[in-house]
Write a protein that binds this DNA or RNA. Structure first.
Lengths: 135, 135
DNA sequence: CCGCATCCTAGGGGATACTG
DNA sequence: CAGTATCCCCTAGGATGCGG
């Protein structure tokens, strides 16, 4: 009753980064949060945003997010069924994280000019620097 | 020669968040970056920072980070061997991301007062709100 | 529309031992 | 010190089908 931390903290990670990442673990949690940040979505709406996700996996990851207290699941007892997913207040505290993730993806993975510049000059793969850059 | 993007982008993710997370994928990459952000480290120095990591896994994850261009590996041809790992310029662009991850972990996973408040009030697990909070 | 149950596989990741 | 090489297990995650 006084220990929601036990649920939230999964395997007592030693480092704050590790801790946070444990909640984003799984192939789809990050993207789910990213979309839910922008507003409540029904199951199939969410599914359409994630073209590659399986029904099973979407359900599973949503349940885990719910169990972590990051996402709320609201069932409307109507027919056909209507289930809405939304960020909880706790979930919303992840916004800076998700924003940072999204920003980096935009800048350095998708084809922006600055991203390409840096990729060239950092040269991990091609350009040997001073002593012995491994291959 | 003009396509480092092919190496960097692994499976052409559809969303920037997904893209970024694909580089943090694996059990240890986040923590590795977290520690390397603070400065260059030798293999065993890094290992001591990650008490639970296996030699094999540390090597593997470092190689993947290197291949992504986020981390550089410098071999000094001396005996005993000396290998230093450091962030590349591209890797350093992840600092805002890693900082955000670390901050959230500190605030909401480790036992800070605000974190506990929010966990109680967001009540994903216990407190039914209006219609039917699932259980 | 939303989701569970079942079956199945690839590969992530641990343990341990050996090398330059 | 900084790795490879083996073996082996486990489970994340895909495919498919049923049900309210």
């Amino acid at each position: 009753m006084s220990l929601p931390r036990a649920k939230l903290v999964r395997n007592f990670p030693g480092c704050p980064v590790e801790a946070t990442l444990s909640y984003l673990d799984g192939k789809w949690k990050g993207v789910i949060l990213f979309h839910l940040m922008k507003g409540t979505l029904r199951f199939n709406q969410l599914r359409r945003k994630l073209p590659a996700v399986t029904q099973r996996m979407l359900t599973k990851q949503l349940r885990e997010l719910e169990e972590s207290g990051l996402v709320s699941r609201t069932v409307f007892p109507v027919v056909p069924p209507r289930v809405e997913y939304a960020m909880t207040p706790l979930g919303m505290t992840l916004k800076p994280v998700v924003d940072a993730l999204a920003a980096w993806g935009d800048d350095y993975v998708f084809c922006s000019p600055e991203g390409r510049e840096l990729r060239m000059s950092s040269g991990g793969l091609h350009a040997p620097a001073s002593p012995l850059q491994a291959g």
